[in-house]
Design a protein around this nucleic acid. Structure first.
Lengths: 229, 229
DNA sequence: CCGAGTTCGTGAATGTGTGCACAAGCGCGT
DNA sequence: ACGCGCTTGTGCACACATTCACGAACTCGG
Protein backbone atom coordinates (compact mmCIF):
# COMPACT_ATOMS: atom_id res chain seq x y z
CA UNK A 1 0.00 0.00 0.00
CA UNK A 2 1.02 3.62 0.44
CA UNK A 3 1.37 4.11 -3.26
CA UNK A 4 -1.70 5.13 -5.11
CA UNK A 5 -1.75 5.04 -8.92
CA UNK A 6 0.30 8.23 -9.11
CA UNK A 7 -1.48 9.90 -11.96
CA UNK A 8 0.36 12.68 -13.68
CA UNK A 9 -0.50 16.03 -12.12
CA UNK A 10 -0.72 19.00 -14.49
CA UNK A 11 1.89 21.64 -13.86
CA UNK A 12 -0.74 24.34 -13.44
CA UNK A 13 -2.24 22.33 -10.63
CA UNK A 14 1.13 21.77 -8.97
CA UNK A 15 1.58 25.51 -8.87
CA UNK A 16 -1.71 26.00 -7.07
CA UNK A 17 -1.45 23.19 -4.55
CA UNK A 18 0.99 25.04 -2.27
CA UNK A 19 -1.45 27.93 -2.07
CA UNK A 20 -4.33 25.65 -1.13
CA UNK A 21 -2.10 24.04 1.44
CA UNK A 22 -1.18 27.36 2.99
CA UNK A 23 -4.80 28.40 3.21
CA UNK A 24 -5.91 25.10 4.66
CA UNK A 25 -3.15 25.20 7.23
CA UNK A 26 -4.23 28.60 8.42
CA UNK A 27 -7.87 27.75 8.91
CA UNK A 28 -9.47 27.80 12.31
CA UNK A 29 -9.17 24.49 14.05
CA UNK A 30 -12.88 24.34 14.70
CA UNK A 31 -13.61 24.19 10.99
CA UNK A 32 -13.39 20.55 10.13
CA UNK A 33 -14.82 20.58 6.63
CA UNK A 34 -14.53 22.99 3.74
CA UNK A 35 -16.30 23.13 0.40
CA UNK A 36 -14.60 23.71 -2.92
CA UNK A 37 -16.39 27.04 -3.10
CA UNK A 38 -15.11 28.28 0.25
CA UNK A 39 -11.59 27.23 -0.58
CA UNK A 40 -11.90 28.81 -4.01
CA UNK A 41 -12.93 32.12 -2.47
CA UNK A 42 -10.00 32.09 -0.11
CA UNK A 43 -7.60 31.25 -2.90
CA UNK A 44 -9.08 33.71 -5.37
CA UNK A 45 -9.90 31.11 -8.01
CA UNK A 46 -13.10 29.41 -9.05
CA UNK A 47 -14.65 26.38 -7.47
CA UNK A 48 -14.49 24.13 -10.50
CA UNK A 49 -10.76 24.63 -10.67
CA UNK A 50 -10.35 23.68 -7.03
CA UNK A 51 -12.35 20.52 -7.51
CA UNK A 52 -10.47 19.55 -10.62
CA UNK A 53 -7.13 20.23 -8.96
CA UNK A 54 -8.01 18.18 -5.91
CA UNK A 55 -9.44 15.41 -8.04
CA UNK A 56 -5.95 14.70 -9.37
CA UNK A 57 -4.95 13.65 -5.89
CA UNK A 58 -7.82 11.21 -5.65
CA UNK A 59 -11.40 11.40 -4.48
CA UNK A 60 -10.88 12.87 -1.09
CA UNK A 61 -14.07 14.88 -0.86
CA UNK A 62 -17.52 13.89 0.27
CA UNK A 63 -20.49 14.96 -1.84
CA UNK A 64 -22.92 17.11 0.04
CA UNK A 65 -20.28 17.80 2.69
CA UNK A 66 -17.00 18.99 1.28
CA UNK A 67 -13.44 18.10 2.13
CA UNK A 68 -12.22 17.18 5.58
CA UNK A 69 -9.58 19.77 6.25
CA UNK A 70 -7.12 17.69 8.23
CA UNK A 71 -7.23 14.82 5.80
CA UNK A 72 -6.92 17.09 2.81
CA UNK A 73 -3.93 18.85 4.32
CA UNK A 74 -2.31 15.49 4.79
CA UNK A 75 -2.95 14.43 1.23
CA UNK A 76 -1.75 17.67 -0.30
CA UNK A 77 1.36 17.62 1.82
CA UNK A 78 2.07 14.10 0.76
CA UNK A 79 1.54 14.87 -2.89
CA UNK A 80 3.92 17.80 -2.65
CA UNK A 81 6.52 15.65 -0.98
CA UNK A 82 6.26 17.53 2.29
CA UNK A 83 6.20 14.46 4.46
CA UNK A 84 9.71 15.44 5.36
CA UNK A 85 11.72 18.67 5.33
CA UNK A 86 13.83 19.70 2.37
CA UNK A 87 16.93 21.49 3.56
CA UNK A 88 18.13 24.24 1.21
CA UNK A 89 21.44 25.94 0.75
CA UNK A 90 21.66 29.61 -0.15
CA UNK A 91 24.51 30.85 -2.31
CA UNK A 92 25.11 34.55 -1.86
CA UNK A 93 24.79 36.40 1.44
CA UNK A 94 24.03 39.82 0.00
CA UNK A 95 20.82 41.71 0.68
CA UNK A 96 18.63 39.14 -0.93
CA UNK A 97 20.43 36.12 0.48
CA UNK A 98 20.15 37.60 3.95
CA UNK A 99 16.49 38.37 3.53
CA UNK A 100 15.85 34.83 2.37
CA UNK A 101 17.80 33.31 5.24
CA UNK A 102 15.82 35.40 7.68
CA UNK A 103 12.52 34.58 6.04
CA UNK A 104 10.56 32.51 8.49
CA UNK A 105 8.28 31.27 5.72
CA UNK A 106 10.98 28.93 4.50
CA UNK A 107 11.43 26.86 7.59
CA UNK A 108 7.74 27.14 8.49
CA UNK A 109 6.81 25.49 5.26
CA UNK A 110 9.33 22.72 5.34
CA UNK A 111 12.47 24.27 3.87
CA UNK A 112 15.00 24.89 6.62
CA UNK A 113 18.13 26.74 5.62
CA UNK A 114 20.95 24.22 5.95
CA UNK A 115 23.62 26.67 4.96
CA UNK A 116 24.58 30.00 3.47
CA UNK A 117 27.78 30.53 1.55
CA UNK A 118 29.50 33.53 0.03
CA UNK A 119 32.90 34.47 -1.34
CA UNK A 120 33.25 37.72 0.58
CA UNK A 121 35.54 37.21 3.61
CA UNK A 122 33.80 40.12 5.32
CA UNK A 123 30.54 38.21 5.39
CA UNK A 124 31.88 34.82 6.36
CA UNK A 125 31.32 34.01 9.98
CA UNK A 126 28.38 36.31 10.50
CA UNK A 127 25.16 34.68 11.56
CA UNK A 128 21.96 35.22 9.60
CA UNK A 129 18.68 33.70 10.60
CA UNK A 130 20.52 31.44 12.99
CA UNK A 131 22.88 30.12 10.35
CA UNK A 132 26.53 30.98 10.06
CA UNK A 133 27.79 32.16 6.70
CA UNK A 134 30.50 29.87 5.34
CA UNK A 135 32.98 30.14 2.53
CA UNK A 136 31.76 28.90 -0.81
CA UNK A 137 34.52 26.28 -0.78
CA UNK A 138 32.56 24.46 1.87
CA UNK A 139 29.51 24.24 -0.34
CA UNK A 140 30.00 20.70 -1.54
CA UNK A 141 30.73 19.44 1.95
CA UNK A 142 27.64 21.13 3.33
CA UNK A 143 25.43 19.81 0.56
CA UNK A 144 26.57 16.28 1.15
CA UNK A 145 26.61 16.27 4.92
CA UNK A 146 23.20 17.90 5.24
CA UNK A 147 21.73 15.96 2.34
CA UNK A 148 20.68 19.10 0.54
CA UNK A 149 19.00 18.68 -2.83
CA UNK A 150 17.73 22.23 -3.37
CA UNK A 151 19.96 25.24 -3.91
CA UNK A 152 19.03 28.92 -3.99
CA UNK A 153 21.09 31.26 -6.15
CA UNK A 154 21.09 34.77 -4.69
CA UNK A 155 24.33 36.06 -6.16
CA UNK A 156 24.95 38.97 -8.49
CA UNK A 157 24.20 38.05 -12.12
CA UNK A 158 27.86 37.56 -13.03
CA UNK A 159 28.35 34.87 -10.42
CA UNK A 160 25.11 33.01 -10.92
CA UNK A 161 26.29 30.47 -13.48
CA UNK A 162 29.31 29.64 -11.35
CA UNK A 163 27.08 29.20 -8.35
CA UNK A 164 24.82 26.91 -10.33
CA UNK A 165 27.77 24.86 -11.55
CA UNK A 166 29.00 24.45 -8.01
CA UNK A 167 25.59 23.39 -6.80
CA UNK A 168 25.16 20.88 -9.58
CA UNK A 169 28.67 19.58 -9.04
CA UNK A 170 27.87 19.03 -5.39
CA UNK A 171 24.81 17.00 -6.26
CA UNK A 172 21.97 19.49 -5.99
CA UNK A 173 19.15 18.63 -8.37
CA UNK A 174 16.82 21.62 -8.01
CA UNK A 175 17.71 25.29 -8.18
CA UNK A 176 15.76 28.41 -7.39
CA UNK A 177 17.42 31.26 -9.25
CA UNK A 178 16.97 34.88 -8.19
CA UNK A 179 19.66 36.25 -10.46
CA UNK A 180 18.54 37.83 -13.73
CA UNK A 181 20.43 35.25 -15.79
CA UNK A 182 19.56 32.16 -17.74
CA UNK A 183 21.27 29.23 -16.09
CA UNK A 184 22.43 26.30 -18.11
CA UNK A 185 22.32 23.06 -16.21
CA UNK A 186 22.13 19.37 -17.07
CA UNK A 187 18.76 18.23 -18.28
CA UNK A 188 18.02 16.35 -15.09
CA UNK A 189 18.29 19.42 -12.89
CA UNK A 190 15.15 21.54 -12.35
CA UNK A 191 15.44 25.29 -12.31
CA UNK A 192 12.85 27.84 -11.36
CA UNK A 193 13.55 31.49 -11.82
CA UNK A 194 12.26 34.49 -9.94
CA UNK A 195 13.18 37.78 -11.51
CA UNK A 196 11.90 40.64 -9.43
CA UNK A 197 12.31 43.23 -12.15
CA UNK A 198 10.43 41.07 -14.63
CA UNK A 199 7.43 41.06 -12.34
CA UNK A 200 7.44 44.84 -12.32
CA UNK A 201 7.82 44.97 -16.06
CA UNK A 202 4.77 42.79 -16.51
CA UNK A 203 2.80 45.09 -14.24
CA UNK A 204 4.16 48.06 -16.15
CA UNK A 205 2.92 46.60 -19.39
CA UNK A 206 -0.62 46.42 -18.09
CA UNK A 207 -0.36 49.86 -16.51
CA UNK A 208 0.60 51.33 -19.81
CA UNK A 209 -2.21 49.59 -21.67
CA UNK A 210 -4.70 50.81 -19.16
CA UNK A 211 -3.67 54.40 -19.69
CA UNK A 212 -4.31 54.35 -23.41
CA UNK A 213 -7.99 53.72 -23.88
CA UNK A 214 -7.79 56.25 -26.68
CA UNK A 215 -7.89 54.26 -29.86
CA UNK A 216 -7.74 50.81 -31.36
CA UNK A 217 -8.54 47.85 -29.18
CA UNK A 218 -11.47 47.73 -31.51
CA UNK A 219 -9.39 46.86 -34.55
CA UNK A 220 -8.89 43.44 -33.21
CA UNK A 221 -10.25 41.24 -35.94
CA UNK A 222 -7.19 42.12 -37.96
CA UNK A 223 -7.78 41.32 -41.61
CA UNK A 224 -5.18 43.37 -43.44
CA UNK A 225 -1.68 43.70 -42.20
CA UNK A 226 -0.99 47.45 -42.05
CA UNK A 227 1.22 47.59 -45.10
CA UNK A 228 3.88 50.14 -44.34
CA UNK A 229 4.44 51.56 -47.80
CA UNK B 1 3.03 57.03 -36.67
CA UNK B 2 3.81 55.85 -33.19
CA UNK B 3 0.63 53.87 -32.98
CA UNK B 4 0.62 50.52 -34.67
CA UNK B 5 -2.55 48.46 -34.67
CA UNK B 6 -1.99 47.34 -31.11
CA UNK B 7 -3.00 43.77 -31.43
CA UNK B 8 -3.67 41.91 -28.27
CA UNK B 9 -0.53 40.32 -26.90
CA UNK B 10 -0.92 36.92 -25.23
CA UNK B 11 -0.07 36.92 -21.56
CA UNK B 12 2.51 34.16 -22.01
CA UNK B 13 4.32 36.37 -24.47
CA UNK B 14 4.18 39.39 -22.17
CA UNK B 15 5.90 37.31 -19.53
CA UNK B 16 8.75 36.47 -21.87
CA UNK B 17 9.32 39.89 -23.41
CA UNK B 18 11.17 41.29 -20.39
CA UNK B 19 13.60 38.38 -20.60
CA UNK B 20 14.26 38.99 -24.27
CA UNK B 21 14.75 42.64 -23.50
CA UNK B 22 17.26 41.95 -20.79
CA UNK B 23 19.24 39.64 -23.03
CA UNK B 24 19.19 42.04 -25.94
CA UNK B 25 20.30 44.90 -23.72
CA UNK B 26 23.29 42.93 -22.51
CA UNK B 27 24.56 41.96 -25.95
CA UNK B 28 27.88 43.22 -27.25
CA UNK B 29 27.51 46.50 -29.04
CA UNK B 30 29.27 45.19 -32.12
CA UNK B 31 26.52 42.68 -32.73
CA UNK B 32 23.95 44.56 -34.73
CA UNK B 33 21.69 41.71 -35.81
CA UNK B 34 20.47 38.60 -34.08
CA UNK B 35 18.52 35.61 -35.35
CA UNK B 36 15.55 34.07 -33.62
CA UNK B 37 17.65 30.99 -33.02
CA UNK B 38 20.48 32.86 -31.31
CA UNK B 39 18.06 34.74 -29.13
CA UNK B 40 16.22 31.53 -28.36
CA UNK B 41 19.42 29.86 -27.20
CA UNK B 42 20.24 32.74 -24.93
CA UNK B 43 16.74 32.76 -23.49
CA UNK B 44 16.49 29.02 -23.12
CA UNK B 45 13.41 28.64 -25.31
CA UNK B 46 12.91 27.49 -28.87
CA UNK B 47 13.22 29.61 -31.97
CA UNK B 48 9.65 29.29 -33.17
CA UNK B 49 8.44 30.71 -29.88
CA UNK B 50 10.75 33.68 -30.18
CA UNK B 51 9.54 34.42 -33.69
CA UNK B 52 5.91 34.11 -32.74
CA UNK B 53 6.37 36.28 -29.67
CA UNK B 54 8.13 38.98 -31.65
CA UNK B 55 5.60 38.77 -34.44
CA UNK B 56 2.96 40.10 -32.07
CA UNK B 57 4.88 43.36 -31.94
CA UNK B 58 4.88 43.65 -35.70
CA UNK B 59 7.17 42.49 -38.48
CA UNK B 60 10.44 43.85 -37.23
CA UNK B 61 12.72 41.13 -38.57
CA UNK B 62 14.33 40.72 -41.95
CA UNK B 63 14.25 37.33 -43.64
CA UNK B 64 17.66 35.89 -44.27
CA UNK B 65 19.17 38.39 -41.82
CA UNK B 66 17.49 38.40 -38.45
CA UNK B 67 16.43 41.22 -36.16
CA UNK B 68 18.30 44.49 -35.81
CA UNK B 69 19.15 44.54 -32.12
CA UNK B 70 18.86 48.26 -31.46
CA UNK B 71 15.55 48.57 -33.25
CA UNK B 72 14.17 45.47 -31.59
CA UNK B 73 15.18 46.74 -28.16
CA UNK B 74 13.34 49.95 -28.89
CA UNK B 75 10.21 48.14 -30.00
CA UNK B 76 10.14 45.78 -27.07
CA UNK B 77 10.70 48.62 -24.65
CA UNK B 78 7.89 50.54 -26.21
CA UNK B 79 5.56 47.59 -26.10
CA UNK B 80 6.31 47.06 -22.44
CA UNK B 81 5.67 50.69 -21.67
CA UNK B 82 9.28 51.36 -20.75
CA UNK B 83 9.56 54.60 -22.68
CA UNK B 84 9.47 56.22 -19.29
CA UNK B 85 10.28 55.15 -15.75
CA UNK B 86 7.67 53.75 -13.42
CA UNK B 87 8.35 54.82 -9.86
CA UNK B 88 7.38 52.25 -7.23
CA UNK B 89 6.66 52.51 -3.55
CA UNK B 90 7.62 49.76 -1.14
CA UNK B 91 5.48 49.05 1.89
CA UNK B 92 7.42 47.31 4.61
CA UNK B 93 11.06 47.97 5.47
CA UNK B 94 11.84 44.56 6.93
CA UNK B 95 14.43 42.21 5.53
CA UNK B 96 12.72 41.81 2.23
CA UNK B 97 11.72 45.44 1.81
CA UNK B 98 15.30 46.47 2.47
CA UNK B 99 16.68 43.95 0.02
CA UNK B 100 14.26 45.19 -2.61
CA UNK B 101 15.11 48.82 -2.00
CA UNK B 102 18.77 48.01 -2.35
CA UNK B 103 18.27 45.93 -5.45
CA UNK B 104 19.92 47.76 -8.29
CA UNK B 105 17.94 45.78 -10.84
CA UNK B 106 14.85 47.82 -10.09
CA UNK B 107 16.16 51.23 -11.02
CA UNK B 108 18.32 49.80 -13.80
CA UNK B 109 15.31 48.41 -15.52
CA UNK B 110 13.10 51.45 -15.19
CA UNK B 111 11.55 51.08 -11.75
CA UNK B 112 13.11 53.59 -9.36
CA UNK B 113 12.10 53.35 -5.73
CA UNK B 114 10.12 56.50 -5.03
CA UNK B 115 9.54 55.67 -1.41
CA UNK B 116 9.63 53.12 1.39
CA UNK B 117 7.21 53.19 4.27
CA UNK B 118 6.84 51.22 7.47
CA UNK B 119 4.96 51.44 10.76
CA UNK B 120 7.92 50.73 13.00
CA UNK B 121 9.26 54.00 14.50
CA UNK B 122 12.67 52.35 14.86
CA UNK B 123 12.99 52.02 11.12
CA UNK B 124 11.64 55.40 10.12
CA UNK B 125 14.33 57.83 9.15
CA UNK B 126 16.91 55.26 8.19
CA UNK B 127 18.12 55.37 4.63
CA UNK B 128 17.99 52.29 2.42
CA UNK B 129 19.25 52.27 -1.13
CA UNK B 130 19.39 56.03 -1.04
CA UNK B 131 15.78 56.42 0.05
CA UNK B 132 14.64 57.46 3.50
CA UNK B 133 12.08 55.28 5.23
CA UNK B 134 8.90 57.22 6.01
CA UNK B 135 5.91 56.55 8.17
CA UNK B 136 3.10 54.73 6.49
CA UNK B 137 0.86 57.75 7.10
CA UNK B 138 2.79 59.54 4.41
CA UNK B 139 2.05 56.84 1.87
CA UNK B 140 -0.81 58.62 0.12
CA UNK B 141 1.10 61.87 -0.09
CA UNK B 142 4.12 60.12 -1.54
CA UNK B 143 2.08 58.21 -4.08
CA UNK B 144 0.43 61.35 -5.32
CA UNK B 145 3.40 63.66 -5.33
CA UNK B 146 5.68 61.16 -7.04
CA UNK B 147 2.97 59.91 -9.38
CA UNK B 148 3.44 56.33 -8.29
CA UNK B 149 1.17 53.75 -9.86
CA UNK B 150 2.90 50.57 -8.72
CA UNK B 151 3.13 49.42 -5.12
CA UNK B 152 5.18 46.60 -3.61
CA UNK B 153 3.86 44.82 -0.55
CA UNK B 154 6.72 43.49 1.57
CA UNK B 155 5.01 43.36 4.94
CA UNK B 156 4.34 40.41 7.22
CA UNK B 157 1.29 38.45 6.10
CA UNK B 158 -0.99 39.99 8.71
CA UNK B 159 -0.40 43.51 7.47
CA UNK B 160 -0.53 42.79 3.77
CA UNK B 161 -4.22 43.41 3.19
CA UNK B 162 -4.03 46.71 5.07
CA UNK B 163 -1.05 47.70 3.00
CA UNK B 164 -2.93 46.86 -0.17
CA UNK B 165 -5.95 48.84 0.95
CA UNK B 166 -3.77 51.86 1.65
CA UNK B 167 -2.09 51.58 -1.72
CA UNK B 168 -5.37 51.27 -3.56
CA UNK B 169 -6.82 54.14 -1.57
CA UNK B 170 -3.90 56.31 -2.56
CA UNK B 171 -4.48 55.58 -6.21
CA UNK B 172 -2.04 52.77 -6.96
CA UNK B 173 -3.33 50.51 -9.72
CA UNK B 174 -0.75 47.71 -9.76
CA UNK B 175 0.57 45.73 -6.83
CA UNK B 176 3.41 43.27 -6.51
CA UNK B 177 2.72 41.15 -3.45
CA UNK B 178 5.48 39.29 -1.63
CA UNK B 179 3.36 38.37 1.37
CA UNK B 180 1.93 34.86 1.47
CA UNK B 181 -1.62 36.16 1.45
CA UNK B 182 -4.37 36.49 -1.11
CA UNK B 183 -5.10 40.18 -1.53
CA UNK B 184 -8.55 41.38 -2.35
CA UNK B 185 -8.58 44.49 -4.44
CA UNK B 186 -10.98 46.22 -6.83
CA UNK B 187 -11.26 44.56 -10.22
CA UNK B 188 -9.37 47.34 -11.96
CA UNK B 189 -6.24 46.86 -9.88
CA UNK B 190 -3.66 44.34 -11.11
CA UNK B 191 -1.93 42.12 -8.62
CA UNK B 192 1.00 39.81 -9.15
CA UNK B 193 2.17 37.59 -6.39
CA UNK B 194 5.59 36.21 -5.61
CA UNK B 195 5.61 33.61 -2.87
CA UNK B 196 9.11 32.44 -2.18
CA UNK B 197 8.06 29.35 -0.28
CA UNK B 198 5.71 28.31 -3.06
CA UNK B 199 8.59 28.24 -5.48
CA UNK B 200 10.45 25.87 -3.20
CA UNK B 201 7.40 23.71 -2.78
CA UNK B 202 7.07 23.34 -6.53
CA UNK B 203 10.71 22.29 -6.74
CA UNK B 204 10.15 19.93 -3.84
CA UNK B 205 7.30 18.28 -5.68
CA UNK B 206 9.51 17.48 -8.63
CA UNK B 207 12.35 16.39 -6.36
CA UNK B 208 10.11 13.92 -4.68
CA UNK B 209 8.82 12.54 -7.95
CA UNK B 210 12.31 12.11 -9.22
CA UNK B 211 13.32 10.08 -6.19
CA UNK B 212 10.71 7.42 -6.77
CA UNK B 213 11.73 5.69 -9.98
CA UNK B 214 10.77 2.47 -8.22
CA UNK B 215 7.67 1.54 -10.13
CA UNK B 216 5.67 2.47 -13.18
CA UNK B 217 7.07 5.05 -15.55
CA UNK B 218 9.62 2.48 -16.64
CA UNK B 219 7.17 0.19 -18.34
CA UNK B 220 8.38 1.14 -21.74
CA UNK B 221 9.92 -0.64 -24.67
CA UNK B 222 11.78 -3.91 -24.66
CA UNK B 223 11.96 -6.26 -21.72
CA UNK B 224 10.26 -4.50 -18.85
CA UNK B 225 12.21 -6.24 -16.19
CA UNK B 226 11.42 -3.71 -13.50
CA UNK B 227 8.66 -5.61 -11.81
CA UNK B 228 8.69 -4.46 -8.22
CA UNK B 229 7.79 -7.39 -6.02
C1' DC C 1 20.55 38.14 -62.91
C1' DC C 2 20.31 33.69 -60.91
C1' DG C 3 20.75 30.05 -57.62
C1' DA C 4 22.12 28.61 -53.03
C1' DG C 5 21.74 29.46 -48.40
C1' DT C 6 19.44 31.90 -44.52
C1' DT C 7 15.88 33.30 -41.65
C1' DC C 8 11.41 35.35 -40.89
C1' DG C 9 6.31 35.09 -40.47
C1' DT C 10 2.49 32.34 -39.93
C1' DG C 11 -1.22 28.60 -40.91
C1' DA C 12 -2.24 24.41 -39.05
C1' DA C 13 -1.66 20.63 -35.74
C1' DT C 14 -1.04 19.41 -31.29
C1' DG C 15 -0.92 19.96 -26.33
C1' DT C 16 -2.51 22.21 -22.02
C1' DG C 17 -5.64 24.65 -19.13
C1' DT C 18 -10.28 26.51 -17.90
C1' DG C 19 -15.04 26.61 -16.81
C1' DC C 20 -19.68 25.10 -17.39
C1' DA C 21 -23.14 22.09 -16.36
C1' DC C 22 -24.95 18.07 -14.60
C1' DA C 23 -25.30 13.27 -12.89
C1' DA C 24 -23.95 10.78 -8.87
C1' DG C 25 -23.51 10.48 -4.01
C1' DC C 26 -24.08 11.87 0.70
C1' DG C 27 -26.58 13.62 5.03
C1' DC C 28 -30.47 15.06 7.32
C1' DG C 29 -35.16 15.64 8.62
C1' DT C 30 -39.39 13.65 8.69
C1' DA D 1 -37.42 4.72 3.89
C1' DC D 2 -37.64 8.51 1.11
C1' DG D 3 -37.06 12.90 -0.77
C1' DC D 4 -34.60 17.22 -0.70
C1' DG D 5 -30.76 20.12 -0.66
C1' DC D 6 -26.04 20.31 -1.02
C1' DT D 7 -21.50 19.36 -3.01
C1' DT D 8 -18.34 16.55 -5.43
C1' DG D 9 -16.24 14.58 -9.63
C1' DT D 10 -15.91 14.83 -14.45
C1' DG D 11 -17.30 14.92 -19.60
C1' DC D 12 -17.23 18.30 -22.85
C1' DA D 13 -16.47 22.48 -25.33
C1' DC D 14 -13.81 26.19 -25.68
C1' DA D 15 -9.69 29.12 -25.08
C1' DC D 16 -4.97 29.59 -24.88
C1' DA D 17 -0.13 28.15 -25.79
C1' DT D 18 3.40 25.58 -28.13
C1' DT D 19 5.57 23.55 -31.88
C1' DC D 20 6.06 22.15 -36.56
C1' DA D 21 6.67 22.94 -41.19
C1' DC D 22 6.91 25.61 -45.13
C1' DG D 23 6.42 29.54 -48.35
C1' DA D 24 8.18 34.19 -48.74
C1' DA D 25 11.78 37.38 -48.65
C1' DC D 26 16.27 38.63 -48.03
C1' DT D 27 21.83 38.31 -48.90
C1' DC D 28 25.69 37.07 -51.30
C1' DG D 29 28.81 35.17 -54.77
C1' DG D 30 29.56 34.45 -59.33
Amino acid sequence: MSDRPRRRIPEATVERLPEYLRILSELDDDLDHISSEQLADLAGVNAAKVRKDLSYLGSYGTRGVGYEVAYLVFQVRRELGLTHDWPVIIVGAGNLGQALANYAGFVDRGFPVAGIVDVDPAKIGSVIGGVRVRHVDELATLVRSRKVSIGVVATPPGAAQDAADLLVGAGVTSILNFAPTVLSVPRDVSVRKVDLAVELQILGFHEQRRSVPSLSIVLDADSSRTASA
